[in-house]
Design a protein around this nucleic acid. Structure first.
Lengths: 217, 217
DNA sequence: ACCTGAACACCGTTCAAGT
DNA sequence: ACCTGAACACCGTTCAAGT
């Protein structure tokens, strides 16, 4: 059992917000939550366990988060930050070409779900969380959508895919990518053992989405 | 508070299995569980509430189900039965044409998720349930896959879509349909208010999947 | 065989109190 | 302002006992 820190120094200057909150502990709780999710499922996640890892009473969490859902939303936010940085990194390895970017986005999305199972569950749903009330998450969700739509619009300007209905095309592409990720997570779909096998599979399927958008008006 | 039936008559002949189990109560527990899920989320679902609806002690559930997960799996099975009968019904209204059947399958899948929110969650994932150990569910999952694959193979035989890679094409189509359903359930996607609006949207998107399969080899 | 009450080890959330 | 212990109303699961 982890030795409880009986006293947390009031942390004089640094780590204090305008509201007078101890940001160090807030940060620690988020990190503790992420750590917990690395080896425990969402069902096993509890405020009491998080607090134990951070070395405080579980009631202390209510000073920084409205409730359990709110802490999970904060963790989900970190997840989105990681997701976007993964995408930036992936894009570095490609040309600026529309098609390359399209494939990159799909692969980043799916690979993120594979490598961050529990993360993904609180970010993209399935956890039964009420995220719609969290405006930061709404914003970041819109950002994901806009990112894909931007790529597709570029493809349309370049004449690579047919014009019109760019909203529908974006949603269709997103749905397919999202669907693959969900099916893999739920173990309903086994695209292969090694990462390169999976990548190859995702590449093939993404091409169907591309082909679908090429043709019809 | 519901009046507890203090005594359940041992139910002489009917409603008894070979194992000597009281099938009436087993059935009642499943029905009670379905009823509970109609107005409560999966997170609010508990064995104690189910037992209360059925009018027995919550420990009685352990006589018919190994645990909570096992009861949910039994409910999921009923869900699949309903899903397949929905599909049968939908197919009645179409010609035997490949394309009609393809659209029908997509619409049935998505409409089922919309009309049976909590049902869908335990059937197609997101609930964090361990269903892979339930062989009946594995079987029914394969049935869903085969159903779609059969339609696509027919389309290939009829020359409507290109030959080869029928596994990949099936998975791509399934992923897109599944993705749409998931995004709608998670309220990440709002395709319209009325049912006909939603149907129109689904129809459009399904056409992209169709177009994607037509073209590439 | 079938069902029960009591108990155990957990939960999230709230309250009153300590510094 | 920040954190605590105690309490409340829930859980799933197990045990020993009743018929």
């Amino acid at each position: 059992m982890p030795a409880k820190k009986k006293l947390r120094k009031p942390s004089g200057g640094a780590g204090r917000s305008k509201k007078g909150e101890n940001l160090d502990l807030r940060e620690d709780l988020i990190l503790a939550g992420e750590k917990l999710l690395q080896s425990n499922s969402l069902e096993e996640f509890s405020l009491r366990k998080v607090a134990a890892i951070a070395g405080v009473s579980h009631v202390a969490t209510y000073h920084y988060f409205e409730n359990k859902n709110s802490l999970l939303a904060a963790i989900a936010e970190r997840g989105f930050q990681k997701y976007f940085s993964d995408f930036e990194e992936e894009v570095q390895n490609t040309t600026g070409d529309f098609y390359d970017r399209f494939i990159s986005l799909g692969w980043t999305y799916i690979n993120f779900h594979i490598e961050n199972r529990q993360y993904a569950r609180i970010m993209f749903g399935g956890g039964g969380l009420e995220l719609s009330s969290q405006k930061e998450l709404r914003a970041v969700s819109r950002k994901t959508y806009k990112q894909l739509r931007e790529i597709i619009s570029t493809g349309q300007r370049e004449g690579k895919i047919s014009s019109g209905n760019s909203r529908e095309k974006t949603l269709a592409a997103w749905a397919m990518i999202h669907g693959i990720a969900m099916l893999i997570l739920e173990k309903r779909l086994n695209p292969g053992k090694s990462k390169s096998e999976i990548r190859k599979f995702v590449h093939s399927v993404t091409e169907y989405a591309y082909a679908g958008m090429r043709g019809s008006g």
